[in-house]
């Protein structure tokens, strides 16, 4: 994962940063830097097998109970679930 992070960051630095610096688009530079920082943080957490950072799955699958209620409402048994 670290190699992937380095490749992407190098590509951004080579392709986008010169233009952004030349046009003095500082807010854009900050946005790119923040996005890369976020990706790096999650990439390192993945590499270290750590779950210290919040996982979007927690939001996504917070509605598990609703799905279960729907299934039981329709009386769909386990045999119908993959």
């Amino acid at each position: 994962m670290l190699l992937i992070l380095i490749i992407f960051i190098a590509l951004v630095l080579m392709l986008e940063f010169p233009g952004l610096i030349r046009s003095r688009a500082y807010p854009d530079i900050i946005i790119v830097a923040l996005l890369l920082l976020l990706s790096t943080a999650y990439g390192i957490a993945y590499d270290l097998n750590s779950d210290i950072l919040p996982n979007p799955n927690r939001i996504l699958f917070s509605l598990d109970h609703l799905a279960d209620s729907f299934q039981s409402l329709l009386q769909l048994g386990d045999d119908l679930q993959r």
């Binding site: 994962m1 992407f8 590509l11 986008e16 996005l35 990706s39 999650y42």
Partner: peptide, 17 residues
């Protein structure tokens, strides 16, 4: 300039999630 950073975000989050 957002294409690659957003792409990297997708790669990392797909792996993490």
């Amino acid at each position: 300039y957002l294409i690659l950073p957003v792409g990297l975000l997708l790669v990392v989050f797909a792996s993490y999630m």
